[in-house]
Structures are given as C-alpha cells and as structure tokens.
C-alpha cells in the first residue's frame, strides 16, 4: 500500500506492506536511519519517535497507523544547522557514549521540555523510564536534559539580554 507520512514537516511517501512497522519505513524506505531499531519488543525505547509531539515506540506502531499524524525523528531536532538545546545538552554533559539510545532519549527530552520547561530530576527520570541506556548509568542523561532546560531559547535570549 502507499503510505504517506508527515515527517519533520515534510510529506514523504513509501510503498510498503500494511504489516510494515513505522521504524522500518523510516529507516529502510525513507533512509531516516537516525531512528534506531533495537529490541523489537517495545522494551528498549531505541526506536522512540514523536507522534503528534508524544514519544512512541516506532517498533510497535504500523507505519499505516501514523498516516495523518505529525512524526518527528531525531533528524528533525536541529533547525537551520543549529542544534536543539537538547542535542547541545547531550554534548555538553556527556549524555551519551555509544549513542544507540540517544535519538530516542533526545526526542523524549524534547517532548518533556515542551510540556514542562523546568522538570525536576525525578520528572526527567520518569520521562525516560521507558528507554534503556547501557552506557551512562543515566546520570549524565538527566544532567543533559537539565542543561537543555536551563539553556532553552527563551532562557538563553534572556541571559544574553542581561549580559
């Protein structure tokens, strides 16, 4: 079947069987390999993308089910060559080692900060609790999200104005 998706603000189409999962259409049909494919059993969260702004495990959603919804992948985080504050936060706070969980972690962080610009460490930990990181022990990821919260566009602009 023809599947038409809205991904990172662009309309993309793919010819795929109805049984094709969203993660595979993204990676194999549309070459958006930033979304990682991990456990295949909706446990690890490596494949998290945003669907209408909410984190969703794309290994457990049919691509066909995503039609008519706005998909955001890690490729959609940076704008005009500028890293999203979440990406910058992972860089600044060493929020990744191998990087496998990072796209999903960053998208979940983005969704969290959109709803709650100043989350507590506990709220960050709950938000990422559906995603597994085997390298960092999570502490640096929590710090990375905090960094992003403290350096969001609004906050940064304010600081610059004061400076």
């Amino acid at each position: 079947m023809q599947i038409t998706l809205s991904i990172n603000g662009e309309t993309r189409s793919a010819e795929a069987e109805p049984r094709t999962l969203l993660v595979h259409v993204l990676r194999d049909h549309l070459d958006l390999t930033g979304t990682h494919w991990g456990c295949d059993t909706s446990n690890c969260g490596a494949c998290v993308v945003l669907v209408d702004g909410e984190p969703v495990k794309s290994c457990t959603m049919l691509a066909a089910m995503a039609e008519g919804h706005e998909i955001t992948t890690v490729e959609g985080l940076a704008r005009d060559g500028e890293l999203d504050p979440v990406q910058q936060g992972f860089f600044e706070e060493h929020g990744l080692q191998c990087g496998f969980c990072t796209p999903g972690m960053m998208l979940t962080a983005r969704a969290l900060l959109n709803e709650n610009p100043n989350p507590s460490d506990e709220e960050i930990r709950v938000a990422i609790s559906g995603q597994i990181c085997r390298c960092t022990g999570y502490a640096n990821i929590v710090r990375a999200v905090r960094w992003a919260a403290e350096h969001e566009a609004g906050a940064t602009a304010g600081e610059e104005a004061i400076a």
Partner: peptide, 9 residues
C-alpha cells in the same frame, strides 16, 4: 503499567 511511551499508545 509499562512505561511512558507505551502508555501514550
């Protein structure tokens, strides 16, 4: 029940 991304669906 499960985790936040699962609960979103």
């Amino acid at each position: 029940i499960a985790d936040p991304p699962v609960r979103n669906r």
